[in-house]
Simulated scan of single mutants.
Amino acid sequence: MVTLNGPLATHLENEVTTLCHCWRLRRSDGTVMGFTDHDRKLTCDGTVFAPETGLSTTEARRSLGMAADSVDVEGALSAIDIEEADIMAGVYDGATVETLLVNWQDPQQFARLRRAVIGQIARRDGRFVAELESPERALDQTNGRTVRRTCDAELGDGRCRVDLEAGGFKGEGVLEAIAGNSITVNGLASFENGWFGNGIVTWTSGAGIGRRERVSAHRKGADGVVLDLWRDIAAPVAPGDTFTVVAGCDKRFSTCRDKFANSANFRGFPHLPGDDAAYGYVMEGQRFDGGPLVE
């Protein structure tokens, strides 16, 4: 429940009001952007709110208890403000949005209505629709570790401890051609098929420098080495751009042991019985000596 007092509360008691909504968006990289449904630029609470996006919002509600509420905001994709390539690259994933109620005649009169996190973003016909999820949405997320057979660490992080700069786990190349979500590259011919499957490509030159893409498959084609990406390339890249790529891990114990020689740091539970363990029965040739199921 938002409690209004002071000059803004007095203004709301008038028969005629001069109110608008402002949205302050703070990305995970620290960038702050301001938007408003007013027709002029406003400066409020240290942020400049621009009207050029034509941002609008759906009906908002606030439920009692711990229910997770959501509201949608819609605006135009603009090279000045929000670019489609940035949305596809995940720049706005997890960004926070504050909604302000502002007296546009006196922007010092304002109230914070809600704080939300950007969830799903849809793009269509030159516009975007972003779902703003209330903080209670975090209660629906899995926190802590999950007991499962596969590893829950990220390759190369502090829990995995694999040194990606050594052991041939990292490659460098040059982009030659793009076909949908597949790229033909030069510089990776010495690596075996599948070595970079589930790995990460990081662009090191060109307009997309610093952007990252997930690799779904790595293969050698008729025209050279091909990397199939998890989705269409979001970064504005072109033939001739350079990149680095790290080896991929499918989170299985056998991969951790054989590919990375890192079984001591495996962060899964490979001995965990499967869902079908209760339905299993003894078969000739099976081993029942009490030893480990995974070696």
Score class of each variant (00 low, 15 high):
A68W: 03
V215W: 02
R212Y: 10
E176M: 09
E136A: 14
V147C: 12
M283C: 05
G65F: 11
R231V: 06
N186V: 01
A238M: 14
D39A: 10
R61D: 15
E165P: 01
F49L: 12
L19F: 04
T184C: 07
D157Y: 08
G30S: 10
V97S: 02
G206A: 08
G171A: 08
E74Y: 02
N186W: 01
E192H: 07
V237C: 03
N181M: 08
R123S: 14
D45Q: 08
G6I: 11
D81M: 13
P107E: 07
V215Y: 03
I233C: 05
G30K: 07
G158M: 03
N103E: 10
K251F: 11
V147T: 14
A68R: 10
R267V: 06
A207Y: 00
R112P: 06
V174D: 00
V97F: 00
G144Q: 06
N262Q: 00
R40W: 03
T36I: 09
I121D: 03
R214C: 05
S254T: 13
T10K: 14
L113H: 01
S216Y: 07
E98M: 04
T242E: 12
T57N: 09
S134M: 04
G206D: 06
G194P: 01
N198L: 10
F128L: 05
L272A: 13
D86P: 00
D241N: 09
G158F: 09
L25V: 14
C44S: 07
N265F: 11
A222V: 12
G208E: 09
Y92E: 06
V185Q: 02
T3F: 14
N143V: 15
T47C: 13
G187I: 01
G240H: 03
G126D: 11
R219P: 03
L229M: 10
P292R: 06
G197I: 00
S78Q: 12
V162Y: 04
R114M: 10
E213C: 10
Q286E: 13
K220P: 09
A67M: 14
V282G: 04
A60E: 12
G280S: 13
R161S: 07
E176T: 03
H38E: 10
A95M: 08
E154H: 11
E192R: 07
